[in-house]
Design a protein around this nucleic acid. Structure first.
Length: 490
DNA sequence: TGAGTCTTGCA
DNA sequence: GCAAGACTC
């Protein structure tokens, strides 16, 4: 039945643009489609996190979302009218808003998590039955997950051939300029503050020192990266003490910038650049964008993998039986392994962790502590500002060795060696572990190996000022290899 | 997007 | 005595 209300609204017809994780005005296909159709646009965000169960946004993500919505509202107001905020259920909110505004169309950009796919599909069908034009678009990916397949017709499971296929298609096609003018239409709105997205505790107060959520912040991060860091990216990206990575991940998660925009800007920079280092650095950087695409490709085609290992043999993996206390020490950055603890504290205080260190802490939790990767994924989900189901799932399964194109089971990172290799002067460790700062560089990465005299001189009593190591790295490594052997041959 | 161990080659 | 490469887990 057609529920469009009688035509009491004068002027051109209206279209709802349903913002979700595409919180930008530039390169936004849903917004562009509504605008190009000559519609007045009702921009809405619907608060309905329960619809994303069991992966409703974690605490850090909600902090970012609050500020990103505030930024989008400011940007929209410059075009005449702010963001409309409503509460879910999403379907009911869209229907009510359509009735109120007389809108005849609804546009949105697609999400790729299993829960969102199911919800959005049902909503699209129902809205069309209502007589509304409901359309979804691609703003979040370079390529739709179903647009790429292997020679034999299935999804890719190995990164390198996947990325070659992407490069063959061209990365930066179809990136659009920002809309010049938007005809916006106002509607009744909740206040952003009533959504309760900000944490009650003062935990997130320092996040604002490190981040600027919103489209402007995303563009600034990209420009800064291309101007200053790109030339050093190939070497600098592995050094956690340096600010050599793009730090675009939370912006990308919330769609404040799209991968096509990033690819286009990087390729333009490469074309202008005469410096070989910049060129290869940006090539490496684009490859990281490729891992993000690959993660979404995998989650789309293997939707159970956010919960279960892709490699079914891991159903029988002998994780340690009582991991609660080990998990807590890891979460709090009190394992007694400096690089692990530094990373976990960086995460807690800034909502982010350097990628090299993410691999080390994840390897330590799953291999040295034999704790299920899902426990680590949950903690990252709640504490990372860039928490993204596809990326998080791929990262943890890759490290645990149970996913697609995973690190071989025997690849166990040694936090001491990784620290000495990638943080040789201990700048990163001293920043996050001030209690160890007075140790000489040599002993910083393994204080339990320092002489009693050195420890005393640095004012450190192990077990009191800083924990003794939770496990022996060599012994636990051997145990992990044995555990992996047991399922490999089973 | 490892690490441990052994061998080789050179000093 | 040790750096670099091969091989294994």
């Amino acid at each position: 039945m057609n529920q469009r209300r009688e035509d009491t609204v004068t002027g051109p017809p209206a279209a709802i643009v349903w913002f979700r994780r595409d919180l930008r005005l530039a390169d936004n296909p849903a917004l562009r489609a509504a605008r190009d159709a000559g519609m007045r646009i009702v921009p809405v965000y619907i608060h309905a996190h329960e619809e994303e169960t069991p992966w409703a946004p974690g605490g850090a993500s909600r902090w970012w979302l609050h500020h990103s919505l505030a930024a989008l509202d400011r940007d929209l107001r410059r075009h005449g009218s702010g963001l409309v905020i409503r509460r879910g259920p999403s379907l009911e909110a869209l229907r009510r808003l359509a009735r109120e505004t007389g809108a005849g169309a609804v546009h949105w950009n697609r999400l790729y998590e299993p829960a969102a796919i199911a919800r959005d599909g049902a909503i699209k069908q129902t809205l069309r039955q209502d007589g509304l034009d409901a359309h979804s678009h691609n703003a979040a990916l370079l390529f739709e997950p179903w647009a790429l397949q292997t020679q034999s017709g299935g999804p890719y499971r190995v990164f390198t051939p996947f990325w070659k296929a992407c490069l063959g298609l061209g990365l930066a096609e179809n990136a659009a300029p920002p809309p010049e003018a938007l005809a916006l239409m106002a509607a009744e709105s909740e206040s952003l503050n009533t959504l309760g997205l900000l944490p009650q505790r003062p935990w997130a107060d320092a996040f604002a020192d490190h981040w600027q959520p919103g489209e402007r912040g995303a563009q600034d991060a990209l420009a800064t990266f291309l101007d200053r860091a790109a030339a050093d990216y190939a070497a600098g990206r592995d050094l956690p003490s340096e600010r050599a990575t793009s730090r675009l991940s939370p912006h990308l998660h919330f769609g404040e910038i799209g991968p096509r925009q990033i690819a286009a800007a990087a390729q333009a920079h490469m074309a202008r650049s005469t410096d070989r280092g910049t060129f290869s650095g940006l090539e490496t950087f684009l490859r990281e964008l490729g891992w993000r695409e690959f993660a979404h490709h995998l989650l789309f085609h293997f939707p159970q993998t956010s919960e279960r290992s892709l490699d079914a043999r891991f159903e029988a993996f002998p994780w340690t039986r009582d991991h609660a206390s080990r998990l807590e020490a890891w979460q709090r950055g009190r394992t007694g392994i400096p690089l692990v603890d530094a990373g976990m504290r960086e995460l807690w205080h800034t909502g982010w962790m350097h990628n090299r260190v993410r691999m080390v802490v994840a390897s330590f939790l799953t291999k040295n502590l034999l704790t299920p990767w899902q426990a680590g994924a949950r903690w990252f989900w709640d504490t990372l500002l860039d928490a993204d189901l596809a990326n998080n799932t791929l990262g943890w399964q890759w490290t645990a060795g149970c996913g697609a194109d995973a690190a071989p089971y025997f690849r166990v990172f040694n936090p001491v060696l990784q620290g000495r290799k990638f943080d040789p002067q201990g700048r990163y460790l001293r920043r996050w572990l001030p209690e160890l700062a007075r140790l000489p560089d040599k002993d910083l990465h393994a204080p339990w190996e320092a002489s009693a005299q050195t420890l005393q001189h640095a004012g450190i009593r192990l077990g009191r000022d800083y924990p003794n190591p939770l496990v022996d790295l060599a012994v636990s490594r051997k145990q992990a290899l044995a555990a992996y052997q047991s399922i490999k041959t089973a």
